[in-house]
Every structure is written in C-alpha cells, then in structure tokens.
C-alpha cells in the first residue's frame, strides 16, 4: 500500500512524464483522425474499435515501459532491502493498471469527441476497459522488468511484449466490438471469463517469477 502511494507520489513529482504520455494519447488519436480523413460517424465500427485499441496498446507500452527505468540503481537496492519482491510487483501492477485505465478513459473521451461515439452498451465497454487495463499492466509490468534487466531498449520492450499481449488484446477487442454493437450481454460473458482467466494466468506467472528477476 505504501508502495502504491510511493509510485503515485513519484509520478506526481515527475509531472512532465505523465503529461507527456497523456499528450501522446491525444496526439495519436488526432493523427489517426486526420489520416483516416473521417468525419464524425463515418468510420465503421470495426475500424473505430481497432484504431482505439491499437492506440491504447501503444500508449500503454510507452507508459509502462518507464516503470522500472525511472528509479536509479541505488534506490532499487533500497527497495530490495525494505520490501519483498511480491509486494513490489503487486504495487507496480496496481499502479500501472490505474495509469492504463486513465489513458484508456482519456483516449475514449478524445475518440468520442472527434471520431464519434458508437458505443451502445457503456457498462460492458467500461468493464471490458477495466479488465483490459489489468491484463495490459500485468503483462507489460513483467515484460518491462525483463527489458530493464537487458539494458532497456525500446525495441526489446516492444518485441517482448507484443506477442505476449496479443491474446489479451484479441479478447478485449472482440468484447468491445460486442459492447459497441450493443449485443446482449450473454454473448460476451464467455469471452469476459476467458479474458479474466488469461489475466489471472499472466498475473499469477508474474507474481511467481518476479522474485527471481528482482534478485539478479
């Protein structure tokens, strides 16, 4: 709990990074808006959906990538002495979930503003966003931990995380497609459970494996 608080304070202290990533989302949405040349409502639902999730994916990768970089070696050693690795990974995952959720909501707001909002089942869409954010952050936090051990270049982060994140992304995209079309919730319930299951697998694996990574 203290650690989550610490992450929040740290982020608050480095406001430029947070603002940077928020601006990243807005500019990315704007670029897509200009490049598809679509006016409000002319974009088809699958395209809207795909663009939205791709932007969220890229911003999340960028946002989470720095979660192990922004602290120096010395301070990491300090955490190593005062906290168990399990506590650290859990706090980082929770914090990154919040961050990803903020990004996703901001992206959603900007999307609705300039590209139109076709979503018919808001509740389902939000629930899916939350689950997607948890999955993204569990997966990306772990991968960014791995990448930070390997000299932390951006390429490595991307190639390691994209394939791993694809199952989560695919499930999230198909649920959000259902929510946009306003299909009966019974249709998506199976997929929601699958998403939840994948999330818990990735989360559990990160929880078990992180201590080994942290010790090195």
């Amino acid at each position: 709990m203290v650690l989550i608080n610490k992450e929040l304070t740290l982020e608050w202290r480095q406001k430029y990074a947070l603002n940077g990533i928020l601006l990243y989302v807005v500019s990315a949405v704007f670029i897509t808006y200009l490049s598809v040349g679509a006016r409000q409502g002319t974009l088809t639902v699958p395209t809207w959906n795909a663009l939205y999730w791709i932007i969220i994916l890229f911003s999340a990768v960028n946002a989470v990538a720095k979660s192990f970089v922004q602290e120096h070696q010395g301070r990491q050693l300090y955490y190593y002495m005062i906290a168990s690795p399990e506590a650290i990974i859990v706090s980082k995952i929770i914090y990154n979930t919040l961050l990803t959720l903020v990004l996703a909501l901001l992206g959603y707001a900007v999307f609705s503003l300039i590209l139109g909002n076709p979503v018919q089942d808001q509740g389902m869409f939000m629930l899916n966003l939350i689950l997607g954010a948890i999955g993204f952050s569990a997966c990306l936090t772990m991968v960014s931990g791995i990448a930070s051990k390997a000299g932390n270049n951006g390429t490595l982060m991307a190639i390691l995380s994209f394939p791993v994140i694809i199952p989560i992304l695919l499930m999230a995209i198909s649920i959000s497609k259902n929510a946009i079309d306003g299909l009966d919730r019974g249709v998506s319930i199976d997929k929601l459970f699958t998403l939840l299951a994948i999330n818990s697998i990735v989360g559990a694996v990160s929880y078990i494996l992180f201590p080994y990574l942290w010790k090195s």
Binding site: M142, V143, I146, K149, A150, L160, P163, V164, I166, P167, L170, M171, T194, A197, I198, I201, V202, V205, S206, L209, Y212, L213, S216
Partner: peptide, 22 residues
C-alpha cells in the same frame, strides 16, 4: 540464463491459451 528462463515460462503461460483456448 535467469532472464531467459523467466521469459520462457511467461511465454509458455501465454502460448497455452493462444494455441489451445482462443
């Protein structure tokens, strides 16, 4: 070896739903 092992296990945990469930 250590980081490779960690990633290998993570990849396998994702591989199973990818191939057998989805």
């Amino acid at each position: 070896a250590k980081i490779g092992a960690v990633y290998n296990i993570l990849a396998f945990a994702v591989y199973i739903p990818l191939i057998f469930v989805l």
